[in-house]
């Protein structure tokens, strides 16, 4: 699924990395615990999270994630956006809560990190 499709399904706004709209997202994961993200997420996947701090971008950088989407209308501050820009990690924000975001994406056919088979 392309980033731009996720943008549409979630009614999301791309905060940074709009030029990567065509990027392919293989799977997704929803978590507010970065250790879990580091432990279970596969590279090239989308992280949905309610956390907005620098560690989210750091975690995405370490795990080679494809993009991060903040849920429930959360918007990161300038510092976070700048770090994401420098690491080439697209950030987006959706007004939907986590449960609704996961539900819609799953229904539209995006896989979770444990189901995905390479």
């Amino acid at each position: 699924m392309k980033l731009k499709e996720i943008e549409k399904i979630l009614g999301a706004e791309i905060i940074t990395g709009a030029e990567l709209r065509e990027k392919n997202i293989e799977m997704a994961c929803g978590s507010d615990l970065m250790s879990d993200v580091l432990s279970f997420m596969k590279s090239e996947s989308l992280l949905l999270t309610g956390l907005t701090n620098l560690q989210v971008v750091r975690t995405a950088e370490m795990s080679d994630l494809a993009a991060v989407c903040f849920v429930r209308g959360k918007k990161p501050d300038r510092e976070i956006i700048e770090m994401a820009e420098s690491k080439n990690i697209p950030l987006m924000t959706t007004p939907l809560p986590m449960f609704e975001s996961c539900g819609r994406l799953y229904q539209e056919g995006l896989s979770g990190c444990s189901e995905y088979k390479r």
Binding site: L33, S35, S39, Q55
Partner: peptide, 15 residues
């Protein structure tokens, strides 16, 4: 609340 401290750090490192 910052997303850490769930006791998974060392487990993760071992993995």
């Amino acid at each position: 609340e910052l997303g850490f401290g769930a006791g998974m750090g060392l487990t993760n490192i071992r993995k």
